[in-house]
């Protein structure tokens, strides 16, 4: 089954082409890594897939359904989850409350006005489970802004996973982390069940290639190369724009 298919996707800002006639597909369960220099359109691609930016042209299908013009909420409902490059959390909410909000987003009581959110035991239980799974349960009562950077990246993941996404977009989950923490992120992604399709943007190329089933390389909004990690590593065009400095 195809988790995601984009066809002829273009996005123009004024004279600039952030995405240029991009077509690609991701199989269910696949780990797809997206490489490319800064400004290649990687984050823009995530924004367009998740519905935060409208493409100028092109079509997006999630699990076989055309979602091109639909809202973010609809795509999340179909099983899309994402993280952000810069951790965007709820600074003054506690970790548990953040997780409960994330879990609750998929539940029918999300519009209820007369009962306390804390009274929904199922939501609370699931939020605590998630936090425990990512070793955040000890931090549950702290405000998110008081957490360390590495912990915040984990909260970011918990929020993205809370609704059990079937397609997870990870935008540089290891950015700004120490070597040890990066290893933890790698282990985290490995831990994810194969029911979840993962698309990953990452600047740590070695880690990215270790995780990938397949790699695509973007340059100036176009698909430059696509293939197995080893092929990509050997591709001279890729080496030139991407590994240039390190492998010369």
């Amino acid at each position: 089954m195809t988790a995601l298919e984009v066809t002829g996707l273009s996005l123009q800002f004024g004279g600039l082409c952030a995405l240029d006639d991009l077509s690609m597909a991701v199989e269910a369960g696949e780990r797809l890594v997206i490489l490319g220099p800064n400004g290649a359109g990687k984050t823009t691609l995530f924004n367009v897939i998740s519905g935060m930016q409208r493409p100028t042209r092109g079509r997006i299908a999630l699990f076989g359904q055309d979602v091109t013009g639909t809202s973010v909420a609809r795509r999340v409902g179909l099983g899309l989850g994402r993280t952000f490059q810069i951790a965007t959390l709820f600074p003054r909410l506690t970790v548990l409350e953040s997780a409960m909000l994330a879990v609750q987003a998929g539940e029918p009581h999300r519009f209820v006005m007369h009962r306390a959110m804390g009274a929904y035991a199922g939501t609370r239980r699931r939020a605590i489970e998630l936090l425990a799974a990512w070793q955040l349960d000890a931090k549950a009562d702290q405000e998110t802004r008081h957490l360390s950077y590495g912990e915040q990246r984990r909260v970011e993941l918990v929020l993205a996973l809370a609704r059990r996404p079937r397609l997870l977009l990870l935008d540089e989950p290891a950015a700004g982390l120490s070597g040890e923490e990066t290893a933890a992120v790698e282990a985290m992604v490995r831990q994810l069940s194969r029911d979840v399709t993962v698309m990953l943007i990452e600047h740590d190329v070695d880690m990215a290639l270790r995780l990938a089933d397949r790699v695509i390389v973007l340059q100036q909004g176009r698909l430059l190369a696509s293939g197995e990690p080893e092929d990509i590593r050997r591709d001279p065009r890729v080496a030139e724009i991407y590994f240039g400095a390190g492998h010369a």
Binding site: V72, V76, E97, A105, M113, H114, A116
Partner: peptide, 22 residues
């Protein structure tokens, strides 16, 4: 205190993220 009110607070804290959560 309700789910509705907590969602409002979430939006105040981070509107984009609440959108991404669905």
């Amino acid at each position: 205190d309700s789910p509705f009110g907590r969602v409002l607070v979430g939006i105040r804290e981070n509107e984009r993220r609440m959108g991404a959560l669905g």
